[in-house]
Design a protein around this nucleic acid. Structure first.
Lengths: 137, 137
DNA sequence: GTGAACCTTTCCCCGTAGGGGAAGGTCAAG
DNA sequence: CTTGACCTTCCCCTACGGGGAAAGGTTCAC
């Protein structure tokens, strides 16, 4: 298969395919006599895996780690479970942080709407974000 | 003030200060006769603003937009309120997405723990992330 | 055979928000 | 005078490719 056939079939761009090859997520593709990449069918399985792993929030480096595991012969299941559980814990923390930030933003906007633009000092740029009391330290 | 005094006082690195100058968040600092940056006191107000805006999740480009607003004479309050409210809405969506992703990950891990590593096909790399049914399409 | 249309290749720069480090100039203390 | 701390610019690095240039390949119709 040519790159232009693999790409839409796998839901990635040709740019991404060349990139994956460059960083080692895909084995170097065979070339035709004129230098075009010629992919075997199995590349679609590999790409499906990469997309599934990305959808789960794994970085390409982590995905590569799983592939290396696999290529060394051992099923990467344990490793993958660790990654997934680690990701889920990251998300717990992240969601917590973002929720707090969002609440602060809403409070900030609330206060900001009650401030008069005329009372805003140019030096501070914006007294909503940068209240004068912070500057008085 | 020299750059090495400004930096710790404002809670940023000297690298960041030079970067802010380069991208236009800070005006070009005066220089001593030997070429060292010589900052006026007001830079601390500016940096305080930048940090406050960053803490709110604004990108440097957005922060620059606010500063430009300010430097054109008009208080940027309305603009800032829009940014803050937009950010809060982004966060609502983001939190929602991340929550779903986390739930999916937990389910995935649950199922994954019940799968036997022996039943995992090397072509698919990992049957937890890449179930065979997806490949059968 | 040849031109148009479309495909592929490699190459390099772009984005975020700076970090790391090299090579070299400057300043105060000993 | 020298040492060490500080400053300067310069370039490469991050994750994940996107955009586009310049060059060459393939395929079709005419």
């Amino acid at each position: 298969m040519r790159i232009g056939q693999v790409a839409p079939h796998a839901g990635v761009t040709t740019k991404a395919l060349r990139y994956y090859e460059r960083v080692g997520l895909l084995p170097a593709a065979d070339r035709t006599s004129s230098g075009y990449r010629d992919y075997p069918e199995e590349v679609l399985d590999r790409l499906r895996f990469i997309r599934a792993a990305q959808a789960v929030g794994l970085a390409l480096g982590e995905i590569k780690g799983v592939i290396v595991f696999r290529e060394q012969g051992s099923p990467p299941c344990g490793h993958v479970l660790e990654l997934i559980e680690g990701r889920a814990s990251d998300l717990d923390r992240r969601i917590e942080e973002l929720g707090q930030l969002r609440d602060e933003l809403r409070q900030l906007a609330q206060r900001g709407r009650s401030l008069s633009p005329d009372a805003c000092s140019p030096d501070l740029v914006c007294h909503i974000l940068n209240p004068a009391s912070a500057s008085a330290r």
